[in-house]
Every structure is written in structure tokens, then in C-alpha cells.
Amino acid sequence: MGRVSRAQAEEHRRQVVEAASRLFRERGVQAVGLGELMGEVGLTHGGFYRQFASKDALVAEAVAQAFAEETSYGDAGGRPAGPEGARRDLLDAYLSPAHRDDAGSGCPVAGFGADMARDEAAAAAREPYAEGVRRFARQVSADGGEDLAAVCTMVGALLLARATAGTELSDEILRAARTALDG
């Protein structure tokens, strides 16, 4: 097999980072093997190390990629414009069954949180993760500050709703968090 062009190599790298970002959020970093990941994008396991120094390096890129994606949790829905309307739209979309059921393209704060907490190998990803949490807290805030309490409530509710998916409690959790943040 011939060598790939620089443009092809860059495209392959982009595909691997995007697939890793999705799969890691769906199942956790440790649950996704490199062979499986490379197969997901049609590449060989051996090609991984031509693109990345280690799985840890890929995790850091996947976290940064997930936070860099333009995440739209909802649209205006006929609400008044401005920070309060945008916050309500964000809360409605974030605390929804659709978001609960789509971990792979969902919130990176929730998707990578457990890995950041339990995996020392994820240390290289902690800075981009922390910066992503801060940006999200600013996005949630209606006054331009950081609303870390709202982020904690939202992420906790999303994780609990995912953990109880398929039960009545799951939807109750989403509604309760939405009600708590409405004020």
C-alpha cells in the first residue's frame, strides 16, 4: 500500500479524533480499544501510532474537539431574544430526553466527567476539560458570569437521567432539574 498524502493523513486524523470524541462520550475512554476505534473509521490499528503519540494524547484531543464543536441544544422556540431566553432554550434542550438518549454527541462535561475523575491517564485532558466547563458555565449564565451551580445541577441531572433511562424516574429527574433551574 502506498503512502498517503499529507491531506489524507490530516483527514484520517480528524476522523479518528471525531470518532474518539463520540465513542469516549458514549462508553468511556477505557471501554474503547484502539483497534475498535481505528476500525470505526476504516483504518488499521497500526496506523494509530503514526497519528498519535499515545491514547492519552488522543483523549486530550478528543476532549478539546468535543468542547470546540458548536453544540446547539435548542433554538429560539418563539421566546424573547436575549440572555434569559437563550438560557431557557439551553435548559430545555439540555434537560431533554433527546439529549439524555444521545450521549455520543451530547455534552462533553457529562460525557467525559467520569473519565476525568477516575483515570490518571486523562491528566493531559484535564486542562482542556476544565476550560470547557468554564466556557459552558458562562454559556449557561444569563448575566455573563459563570453559573457553576447551574452546570452542576444540569450535568448531575443528565447523568442520573441516563443512569435511570427507561424508567419513570429518568424523566422525573429531568423535569425536577428544569424546575429547580427555572427561577
Rank of each mutant, 00 (worst) to 15 (best):
S96I: 01
G113F: 01
M116D: 12
A53M: 03
D119W: 12
L34T: 14
L37V: 14
P83E: 14
Y49H: 13
G28R: 11
D92V: 01
A130D: 09
A98V: 08
T167V: 09
A157H: 09
R126Y: 01
A121E: 06
L37P: 11
G183F: 03
D75I: 01
R135G: 04
V155E: 02
R79P: 10
G82Y: 14
R88G: 00
G82K: 11
L169V: 15
E70T: 10
G33M: 05
L90I: 04
A103Q: 13
C152I: 02
V32F: 04
A125W: 00
V151M: 00
R22G: 02
A122E: 11
G156P: 07
V41K: 00
L160Y: 03
A121Y: 05
Q8I: 10
A117T: 04
F67E: 00
G104M: 02
D115V: 08
A117C: 03
G35P: 09
A130Y: 12
A125F: 00
Q65I: 02
R126H: 03
G156N: 14
M1V: 10
G33T: 13
A57R: 13
A176I: 01
R79N: 11
V109A: 13
E70G: 15
G35Q: 07
L23T: 05
V59I: 14
D115Y: 12
G104T: 02
G74F: 08
P97W: 02
V41M: 01
G145D: 15
